[in-house]
């Protein structure tokens, strides 16, 4: 069936192969997180910036942020009604950068007309917990403070570890009795750092992106002295009641896909509003491939429909 005319997309098999190559190159065994970051940077510098957007880098609440807006919109004129998506990138709290999720941010901005703010939060092991959540909170406070965007017009989102930051931020705001974001969007979120992910050998073998060893190393580097099952690190293990409506997307060929499923089941059980879509043939963090992969474009369409 012919879809709307758009640039050609990667066949899923090729996308899997690409994801595997990415892991071999970036998340290589023995490479320090600093080296992994450098390799990722090198890869990112090869990528053309997605068309149809303007990007400004500026400091929000003391944290450098990429602000992505679909062209044709005045980047300064963030209309209070237009809303903002505050998105935290993934990378196990140790690697990654706003540049890595720019493709997704561009697609979401084009599809929703919203500005997407991508904080360059501090990473472990140099800056372990609670540096990341502190940065997230600082950006939130600045964004929604005096003369800023109403909290309800902000969708807080994140992919992978960024999903953990996003959910943790919403829970912290709830606990502090502060105004909550209007919505949460979590892409392949990493929500339980205490799970060693070795339980399903078939899934471990099939996952092209993540390995239990890499996750364990990232979790240790991020946690520092804090227990891995502390809900501030593993929000899935905390109180999930009273949170904004959330959309959770995950690929099933992902050793942490169960976090998405457990989150959806638990939020439903405590009476929350959650929508889960589980792409049976997709890998970890696939929505970040928006523009290159039909499934990722479909995921962005779902985000746009959810935020409408």
């Amino acid at each position: 069936m012919a879809r709307r005319s758009s640039p050609p997309k990667l066949p899923p098999a090729l996308a899997f192969a690409g994801a595997k190559l990415l892991r071999r190159y970036v998340m290589a065994d023995g490479a320090s997180f600093a080296e992994q970051r450098a390799r990722m940077q090198r890869l990112n510098s090869l990528l053309p910036s997605p068309p149809g957007i303007t990007v400004r880098t500026e400091t929000v609440g003391g944290v450098s942020c990429d602000r992505v807006v679909a062209s044709g919109r005045d980047p300064r004129g963030v209309a209070p009604s237009g809303g903002v998506v505050l998105h935290f990138h993934g990378g196990g709290y140790c690697i990654g950068s706003p540049r890595f999720t720019r493709g997704w941010a561009a697609a979401v901005s084009v599809a929703t007309g919203r500005e997407v703010v991508l904080p360059d939060y501090r990473l472990a092991p140099e800056h372990p917990f609670p540096a990341g959540p502190a940065d997230a909170r600082a950006v939130w406070d600045a964004l929604t403070g005096e003369g800023g965007v109403p909290a309800a017009d902000v969708c807080v989102s994140g992919d992978s570890a960024g999903g953990g930051l996003a959910l943790g931020l919403a829970m912290a705001l709830r606990d502090a009795g502060r105004a909550l974001p209007g919505a949460l969007v979590l892409l392949s979120p990493w929500l339980d750092l205490s799970d060693d992910r070795g339980g399903d050998p078939d899934l471990v073998a099939a996952d092209p992106v993540l390995t239990p060893a890499w996750l364990t190393a990232a979790a240790r580097a991020y946690a520092g002295d804090v227990a891995l099952d502390d809900p501030r690190l593993s929000p899935l293990l905390g109180d999930l009641a009273g949170l904004p409506p959330m959309l959770v997307q995950a690929g099933a060929v992902d050793i942490i896909a169960s976090d998405s499923v457990r989150l959806a089941a638990t939020v439903r059980a405590v009476g929350g509003d959650v929508t889960l879509s589980l792409a049976n043939g997709m890998f970890h963090d696939f929505p970040t491939q928006a523009g290159n992969l039909e499934a990722a474009d479909s995921a962005v369409r779902q985000v746009a429909a959810f935020l409408r």
Binding site: L236, L237, L240, V261, R262, A264, T266, A269, S277
Partner: peptide
């Protein structure tokens, strides 16, 4: 949209 079985809940 998928609804997990209840046994998934934490």
């Amino acid at each position: 949209e998928a609804t997990p079985q209840r046994s998934w809940a934490v």
